[in-house]
């Protein structure tokens, strides 16, 4: 009886994710890793894993797994429809199936298993980077996902009290970026004064936003420069792209602002839960 899952159906997009590959950006290797880091770490804690073990990032539900051994599983993040309890560590008997329906609100659900998903690491991480192609392939129907041995003791939590992920309009805090001066006061006012719509071209690389375009107050090319997640990069269209986990390491368009990314309450994490059609507002950080 091998500790593993068989993927009966992968759903719209399921990937293996962990804490990513920090420290290699100078080699053109982005960090990647879970889009909603806080919720991913919480999933691991609930099944007694170290916080950074690999888990599944399930985008808009649709995942069906069969346990090939007795396994302990939890989901956090977007609450999927179906009988599987949310945020509650649940034993899955050998041969049992777990089905995740579409979430009512939110986009990304993290499924952690006690022992972690034990696929081969690439450059120190099991994260799938959809931009660079590094890491394990996107999870597909019929895949077998090995599960590691349990390490830490169980925390003894039955159900974790977790807030629901909001639907509708979301407001996040924004800080000025290195090239805010390319857009002037009027550009900043336009960024922070309207509701932006998340478009369906959004993915793990970034949220593509639609609204009244931002206008530059200066011309010229920007030499490429380094970026981190949360960057609001403004291409010539004037419509910002909010970079998420698989963003490019460097970019050649000016960054007007950064969404706040405090470790314990990250607004970038919250942006990772936005789905196409939702609206997003940027509130300037108190100065």
């Amino acid at each position: 009886m091998t500790r593993e899952f068989t993927v009966v159906a992968a759903g719209p997009l399921t990937t293996v994710q962990d804490g990513g590959r920090p420290g290699q950006a100078a080699l053109g290797i982005g960090r990647s890793g879970a889009c909603d880091r806080a919720v991913y770490r919480q999933a691991n804690r609930l099944v007694g894993n170290p916080e950074d073990l690999a888990a599944l990032e399930v985008t808009y539900g649709g995942l069906v797994l069969r346990a090939e051994a007795d396994l302990l599983v939890v989901t956090t993040g977007a609450r999927c429809a179906g009988p599987f309890p949310h945020a509650a560590p649940t034993p899955l008997r050998r041969g049992a199936q777990l089905r995740l329906g579409p979430p009512g609100t939110g986009l990304r659900t993290y499924l952690a298993v006690r022992g972690g998903i034990d696929v081969l690491p690439v450059l120190g991480s099991r994260a799938t980077d959809v931009l660079s192609g590094l890491g394990p392939a996107v999870v597909a129907d019929g895949d077998v996902l090995p599960v590691g041995p349990p390490v830490d003791p169980m925390p003894g939590v039955d159900v974790a009290p977790v807030p629901e992920i909001p639907g509708g309009e979301v407001t996040v805090t924004v800080l000025p970026g290195p090239r805010a001066d390319w857009f002037g006061d009027a550009g900043w006012a336009a960024l922070t004064g309207q509701a932006w719509t998340v478009t369906n071209e959004s993915n793990r690389v970034g949220l593509r936003l639609d609204g009244a375009p931002l206008e530059r107050v200066r011309d010229g090319e920007l030499p490429s420069e380094g970026m981190v997640r949360g960057a609001l990069q403004v291409p010539p269209s004037g419509l910002p792209v909010l970079f998420l986990a698989d963003h490019p390491v460097t970019g050649g368009y000016p960054v007007i602002g950064y969404v706040a990314d405090e470790p314990l309450r990250s607004d970038v994490d919250r942006c990772g839960q936005l789905r196409p059609g939702q609206t997003l507002r940027f509130r300037p950080a108190p100065s």
Binding site: P22, G23, Q24, A25, A26, R31, P223, S224, E225, G226, M227, V228, V249, T250, E262, P263
Partner: peptide
């Protein structure tokens, strides 16, 4: 500092805020 990213005119330093 977890990442140091040189580019054409800049060096980005990414920190671990903890």
């Amino acid at each position: 500092v977890v990442d140091i990213v040189p580019a054409a005119r800049t060096v980005l330093l990414v920190t671990d805020p903890s």
